[in-house]
Amino acid sequence: MNSCPTGTYPYKIQSGDSLWLIAQRYHTTIQEIAAVNSGIDMNNLYIGQIICIPEGYDTYLMILSNHMRLLWEQHVYWTRLVILSMVFGLPDTELVTNRLLRNAKDFEAALIPFYGEAVAAKFAELFTSHLTIAAELVQAAKDNNSTAAADAEMRWYANADQIAAFLGSINPYWSDEEWQSMLYDHLAMTKEEAVYLLTKNYEDSIAVFENIEQEALDMADMMTQGIVRQFPQYFG
């Protein structure tokens, strides 16, 4: 399907999607989605496929949800690229690291409309530390410097605590305990991914990355849902 009919909007299928989740996210039903997608096998959707979503959901909600998912996807993809570049000493290490660090500024821009510049900038500051400490940990592991690695890991988890507490303080629908749990899982899996790459266990590095990607989408949806509940006036 190259275009969507009047009264519908295009949506690209992403990892972890199901018709039920899409219908819930955009306040419609599976039956209504199927009705505007004649010729598409709803039981065999694939990542990257474009389907049409009927009117009846909030367009701003769709934009926010897609954008948060994009930012979290970019976060884990660019993190993986940085790890790969560092592990194998690739000449693009500085370039991909700079692109990864831009992720924090992109989150800042996404949060400004809801929380203002000061709050958004604070999140970006904490998130930048999350990224830079991760790079320190990978470098220390590559250098077999266990002391530096342990120090970086301790600061990494302390930073996760700060991020979770900060998010819990700015949105009553974001649980700092839930964010802490998800961030801890994220750190553990990212470390595991780096170790697999350092030890040339490429198959397992791919397997764990798939779990990282799915959790990133879960964090994106949790962030979106909290914003929608806190600012219902923007979403109808």
Rank of each mutant, 00 (worst) to 15 (best):
A121M: 03
A188Q: 15
S169R: 07
A220K: 04
A194W: 10
K200D: 15
I33A: 01
W20M: 07
A220D: 12
A35I: 02
K200R: 10
S175T: 11
I33H: 08
D41I: 02
N2I: 10
F166V: 01
S175R: 08
T224L: 08
A140R: 04
Y11I: 06
L84P: 00
S146T: 10
H67Q: 11
P54V: 05
R229T: 13
G7S: 04
Y57L: 05
D176W: 06
Q139V: 06
V96S: 00
G16A: 09
Y173L: 04
W20S: 13
S38R: 14
W78D: 06
N37L: 02
Q225T: 12
F231P: 14
L84K: 03
F231N: 12
D176R: 05
D92P: 01
H75D: 10
R80W: 00
V87D: 11
T8A: 11
A148P: 09
P5Y: 02
F209P: 03
Q162H: 03
E153G: 02
S169A: 15
E178P: 01
M223F: 06
I47R: 09
L100A: 04
G236H: 15
M1L: 12
T6C: 03
A158N: 07
V195K: 12
S175I: 04
E203F: 13
N98V: 00
S85T: 00
G48D: 13
V208S: 00
V87A: 14
W174K: 01
A216E: 08
P91R: 00
F127K: 01
K191A: 10
L101D: 09
Q180S: 12
L45T: 08
I50R: 12
W78R: 11
L217W: 05
G39R: 09
K105Q: 11
A104E: 09
Y60P: 06
W20F: 15
G56S: 07
I83E: 12
R25V: 01
T147N: 05
E193L: 03
Y196Q: 14
A160F: 07
A124F: 01
I163G: 08
P232I: 02
W179G: 06
D204K: 15
P5C: 05
N44F: 06
R102K: 12
A149P: 12
I40P: 04
I212Y: 02
V138H: 03
L90R: 11
A104V: 00
A188H: 13
A207N: 08
N201C: 07
D92M: 04
E178L: 09
S205K: 03
V119W: 02
I47W: 04
A121G: 08
Y9W: 09
G236A: 08
I212A: 06
L183G: 07
G56C: 10
L61R: 13
E153W: 07
G48K: 01
A104D: 13
N145G: 06
I50N: 15
T190S: 15
E136T: 11
Q162C: 12
M219S: 05
